[in-house]
Amino acid sequence: MWAVRGLLLVLVLVTAQSEPQPETPAEALLSGEGQPCVRGAGPRCGPGLECFRADKKSKVGVCTCKSTHEVCGSDGVTYKTPCALKSANDRRDQELQPEPVTAKGKGRCPSAPLIVTPPGEVYNVSGSQVYLSCEAVGVPTPVLTWNKVVNGGRKKVELLPGDRDNLAVQTRGGPEKHQATGWLLISPLTEAEQGSYECHASNSQGATSAVGAIHLVQSLEDISVKRVLKDEEL
């Protein structure tokens, strides 16, 4: 009899340990990022969060991350804040994914260049001023160069500042936004400058390019005609 009672007691203890324990009252009151919080008695923000109130006199606010910098995760994804990375790990726990995401470093993850604003097509008369522009993003900040496409696309000639008196090449980079913008300015426009131009963006992660064009027309009236024809082709 005593042996049976002992066995039943062991089974009860094992079952109790295997069942999930309910949250304590303190844990239940903790709010996550983006959830409401109340000053004084009420839901409080969890670890790494603070209660932000747009109106300082208001008791109700929203839980926001104390750290506002971006974080590069071990999964290659850039998270807006360390709290966003923590939320991703919480979701992984719920989905029973074994490998947690760790922070590889502060800031965005390295990425190959992406041209977000390619050079377009310009139509103008001889002697006018024309320009092409190009914008690319990437980590590290991409380096932009311009090439003249010749021989039906079989050859590319890099354009450098000071190559010709009527040609100017400018670039501007933004390390914080990892964005680079480049301009190709021609003034005055001659027949030799019409043709295709390539915007080339590169960094340590890769390279990409996009092509624009400059067209020489006989008169200003031809500009609108050429544009209409181009739109009809599209």
Rank of each mutant, 00 (worst) to 15 (best):
A3R: 11
R5A: 12
L11C: 04
E19F: 15
E19T: 11
Q21K: 09
Q21Y: 11
E27M: 14
A28I: 13
L30I: 02
G32E: 14
E33W: 08
Q35G: 09
P36E: 08
C37Y: 11
V38M: 12
R39Q: 10
A41V: 08
G42T: 06
G42M: 05
P43H: 03
P43A: 01
G46Q: 10
L49G: 07
E50S: 03
R53F: 02
R53I: 01
S58N: 07
K59H: 13
T64R: 05
C65Q: 05
S67F: 15
C72Y: 00
S74V: 02
S74F: 06
V77K: 12
K80R: 13
K80A: 07
T81W: 09
C83P: 05
C83H: 07
A84H: 14
S87W: 10
A88S: 11
Q97C: 01
Q97T: 02
E99V: 10
P100Q: 09
P100F: 15
T102C: 13
K104E: 12
K106G: 04
G107Y: 05
P113A: 12
V116E: 13
P118I: 09
P118N: 12
P118W: 10
P119L: 11
V122M: 11
N124R: 00
V125D: 03
G127F: 03
V130G: 05
Y131T: 03
L132W: 05
A136L: 00
V137C: 06
P140E: 06
V143P: 00
L144Y: 02
W146V: 04
K148Q: 06
K148A: 01
V149E: 09
V150S: 08
N151I: 01
G152Y: 11
G153P: 03
K155E: 14
V157I: 15
V157Q: 14
Q170G: 04
T171Q: 12
R172A: 10
E176K: 12
E176L: 14
Q179N: 11
A180D: 05
A180V: 08
T181L: 14
T181D: 02
W183V: 03
L184Y: 14
I186P: 07
S187P: 04
L189Q: 10
L189I: 02
A192Y: 12
S196E: 09
H200N: 00
S202Q: 11
S204V: 07
G206Y: 09
S209N: 01
V211F: 04
A213G: 03
I214W: 13
I214F: 11
H215P: 05
L216C: 05
V217P: 06
V217F: 09
Q218T: 09
L220V: 02
D222A: 15
D222P: 03
S224T: 14
K230C: 06
E232F: 02
L234R: 02
